[in-house]
């Protein structure tokens, strides 16, 4: 019989399909698992309502669990509580930065994300704070497009929601 810890560590082997340096567990989308010897139900929450990677994540979870001895895998999408970047671990944030994506700098508690006034985001390459937002929207739903005024590189910022 598996333990919950085992299962979470199995699921930690599954990378985020769009940001492969972090796992789907680190991303915070796996909310809970309930299981017996043969059957397992996984509660998963979308990062963004329309995130096209969700289907891929579900398929990956199903495959991983079947490979590890479960016979039926039920994926249950839950919307409450809504996913927030606050669930990204400190470790995941460092991985994002090393990968070239600026991690979310604020907590949603300060509500600055609602007014659109964001702090100066640190350039993930040269660490300068002299950066500007090019667009609130980037290459995927979860990112905004920024540019560093010092090293002149464009970079993605993982939006804070």
């Amino acid at each position: 019989m598996q333990t919950k810890e085992n299962i979470f560590s199995l699921l930690s082997e599954i990378p985020d399909p769009e940001i492969p340096v972090i796992s789907i567990v680190e991303l915070g989308v796996i909310r809970d698992v309930t299981f017996d010897e043969k059957n397992i139900e996984v509660k998963i929450t979308p990062t963004y309502s329309g995130c096209p990677a969700m289907k891929q994540m579900e398929d990956d979870v199903r495959k991983k669990l079947i490979e590890n001895g479960f016979e039926t895998v039920k994926i249950n999408t839950v919307y409450t509580p809504a996913w927030t970047t606050d669930w990204l671990s400190a470790e995941a944030k460092i991985k994002l930065q090393k990968y070239g994506i600026a991690p979310p700098e604020e907590s949603t508690n300060d509500k600055s994300f609602l007014t659109g006034k964001t702090k100066n985001i640190t350039c993930p390459r040269c660490k300068s704070k002299n950066t500007m937002m090019v667009s609130q929207f980037g290459s995927t739903a979860c990112k905004a497009l920024y540019k560093c005024n010092d090293c002149l590189e464009a970079f993605d910022y993982f939006k804070c929601i």
């Binding site: 979308p46 963004y48 309502s49 329309g50 995130c51 096209p52 999408t77 919307y79 090019v134 667009s135 609130q136 929207f137 980037g138 290459s139 739903a141 497009l145």
Partner: peptide, 20 residues
Amino acid sequence: LEEDLALTNIALDIFGRGKA
């Protein structure tokens, strides 16, 4: 380009809501 991405992203969010 940026506006193309913006509106596509917005459409995607709204699609997701519609699906749910």
